[in-house]
């Protein structure tokens, strides 16, 4: 355990923990756009920057992204100093130039007193904030079907060569994890389309309702040793089967007892 000071309060934290986790646990609101618990911290959005110093540093201050900075004994952290707020405002100003119509950005910027960017907005803006959560989640799931492509200002999320990604199983994790709902998909009947790839959804034997894609189920059967027949029916039918079984046992045991 180490002890450190955050906004004047002394707190204890586990060694190896990152600052942001400790800050959030204290209920302090530090914005972070590229943070997702399922994946390793990234350090791309820079909004979780905090000011750190130590008594032994002779007044020298450092600005670090709290999502990546491991806690240290005797660290003194300020989450909303003037300089940090100015920095966040500056970064949100840049975000607004890139994503002027994204509600998430607009709201966050408004929190820091910005309604519109002071820069020239980029031509053809979209809602992608390039937080890379989607690609990192896809990596964490073990598929790596999509990736960040190009670099610098032309960076974007895309499947290989902008074509239907061969490794995608259509689990929708990327779309679900996207903080701005930029990644779109379409479910029509038992057909799913994402990243221009068509998938067939398994349907429940009993209700005919679609569940997950055949590719995803195959992956789970093969790599996670889930019995194939688990995917035969949907969750509601599973519950009904369970209730039915338990009903039979009950009736049997009650009759046995009566005998």
């Amino acid at each position: 355990m180490v002890s450190l000071t955050i906004n004047g309060k002394v707190v204890r934290a586990e060694e190896g923990e990152y600052l942001l986790a400790v800050i959030r646990r204290m209920g302090i609101d530090v914005p972070a756009l590229c943070q997702h618990e399922a994946v390793e911290p990234y350090g791309g959005c820079r909004l979780c920057m905090v000011e750190i110093t130590k008594d032994s540093w002779d007044g020298w201050k450092k600005y670090v992204t709290s999502c990546l900075y491991p806690v240290e004994q005797d660290l003194i952290v300020t989450t909303h100093s003037d300089k940090v707020n100015d920095l966040r405002r500056g970064i949100l100003d840049l975000f607004l130039a890139r994503n002027p119509e994204t509600p998430l950005i607009q709201k966050l910027a408004a929190d820091y007193g910005l309604t519109r960017t002071s820069y020239e907005a980029i031509p053809e803006p979209n809602d992608c904030i390039l937080c890379s959560i989607c690609t990192r989640v896809c990596d964490a799931m073990g598929f790596s079907a999509i990736s960040m492509v190009n670099r610098g200002h032309g960076k974007e999320v895309a499947p290989p060569l902008h074509q239907a990604p061969p490794d995608c199983v259509g689990c929708l994790a990327c779309a679900q994890a996207c903080p701005t709902n930029y990644i779109t998909y379409e479910d029509v009947g038992n057909r799913r389309t994402i990243w221009n790839k068509q998938f067939e959804l398994l349907v429940c034997d009993k209700t005919g309702r679609p569940t997950i894609t055949k590719e995803f189920a195959d992956y789970l059967i093969k790599n996670r040793e889930i019995p194939e027949d688990y995917f035969r029916i949907d969750d509601a039918s599973h519950r009904e089967e369970l209730a039915d079984k338990m009903g039979r046992i009950t009736r049997w045991s009650v009759t046995e007892e009566a005998k």
Binding site: E37, A38, A177, I212, F216, L220, F231, D234, A236
Partner: peptide, 22 residues
């Protein structure tokens, strides 16, 4: 189930043989 970690891929919903991931 850690909601912060969950990516809502629905694998557990489909895999649970008792239909208790919802």
């Amino acid at each position: 189930l850690d909601h912060e970690k969950c990516v809502r891929c629905m694998a557990c919903v489909a895999a649970c043989p008792f239909g208790c991931s919802l």
